[in-house]
């Protein structure tokens, strides 16, 4: 057998030896995956897909439970109060971990173990097809001439969306009028209806209208171009190095044994590579953003740091 399996076996045995018969065969019963977003959202879909595909590799059913509240705070509280034997996990997103860095945050990065990043959801900048702006530079020119007037919509306040706008304003030396919305699709609807001029969106939220020709994409907010927008330049290419990395992944309470984290890391890798999951990503227009446990933990630390 290869080194990885051998290593895993040793870790497993060591873990089992240290914690006794409790961990003899994880998982012993169905695992609960807590999702703190509402049913039907992209976030929730990812969780349900992980649950569906993951059963094959884990050997036990995975049940998704929605626990909404405080953008994840209720879920985090709940997970930390459960027995840390690895049977309760939760989803996390970048906007959630952003909050760890806040002044009066209840939770800190070290309260959790990071199992793996699953999907990456980049941003695009869209306008209505009737809009007079064909390129991002045209838009910025207009904004410079009319500071604080051009409306740009995004999800919520103090979110990745808002910080993207702030970074953009700094990089391009412009002032935009940021409009926070409650749901991810609302900015797109507002642009379609002509109520605002520009919107930030993830591909899954705007792809159908883009394909129908109702929307135009001015730029991609990522380091490299990605499908199906290969003809659209990225902000970086245009001279504005703004490329926030919006992702979703899985985490567990900090006291969960290493063996569990490792096992899940393996399972997660298999889930993401599974053709059914890949097909889901394609259809939902989300992108494979798999990162194994250690790399993920490092990423979170780096992004949530002071």
């Amino acid at each position: 057998m290869n080194r990885k399996t051998l290593l895993l076996g040793i870790v497993f045995l060591a873990g089992a030896a240290m914690t006794g018969p409790v961990l003899a065969d994880y998982p012993e019963k169905p695992v609960t995956l807590i999702c703190w977003s509402s049913a039907g959202s992209g976030h929730d879909l990812m969780a349900r897909m992980i649950a569906k595909v993951g059963e094959k590799y884990l050997g036990e059913p995975i049940v998704v439970v929605n626990k909404q509240g405080g953008s994840g705070r209720v879920a985090m509280s709940y997970v930390l109060n459960q027995r840390p034997d690895g049977h309760v996990l939760m989803t996390n997103t970048r906007s959630m971990t952003l909050r760890f860095g806040e002044a009066n945050a209840r939770f800190s990065i070290d309260d959790f173990r990071y199992i793996g990043r699953v999907v990456s959801d980049p941003f695009v900048i869209v306008v209505n097809e009737d809009s007079p702006f064909q390129t991002i530079d045209e838009l910025f020119e207009h904004v410079r001439a009319n500071p604080n007037e051009v409306t740009i919509g995004g999800y919520s306040t103090k979110s990745v969306d808002e910080s993207l706008v702030e970074e953009l304003e700094a990089a391009a030396e412009i002032e935009l009028n940021y409009i926070p919305y409650r749901g991810g699709k609302e900015p797109v609807v507002a642009v379609l209806g002509g109520h605002i001029e520009v919107a930030l969106a993830n591909p899954s939220e705007m792809i159908t209208n883009y394909q129908a020709g109702n929307l135009r994409v001015l730029a991609l907010a990522s380091k490299e171009r990605f499908q199906p927008f290969q003809d659209v330049p990225t902000l970086t290419e245009q001279g504005y190095p703004v490329a926030p990395d919006y992702w979703r992944g899985i985490m567990a309470a900090k006291d969960v044994p290493d063996a569990v984290v490792d096992k899940w890391s393996v399972v997660l890798e298999q889930v993401v590579a599974d053709p059914e999951f890949q097909a889901f990503l394609d259809n939902a227009n989300m992108y494979d953003g798999y990162l194994p446990s250690e790399a993920f933990a490092e990423l979170v630390r780096r992004q949530s740091g002071p």
């Binding site: 899954s204 159908t208 129908a212």
Partner: peptide, 28 residues
């Protein structure tokens, strides 16, 4: 017609449709 849910329940339906690889929207 637009891929935009008109109510909370429709939002759940949207998710369900996507899970079944149906993309609601203008091209549906």
């Amino acid at each position: 017609t637009l891929g935009i849910p008109g109510s909370a329940t429709a939002a759940v339906l949207l998710g369900a449709l996507m899970l079944h690889n149906v993309q609601p929207g203008p091209l549906l």
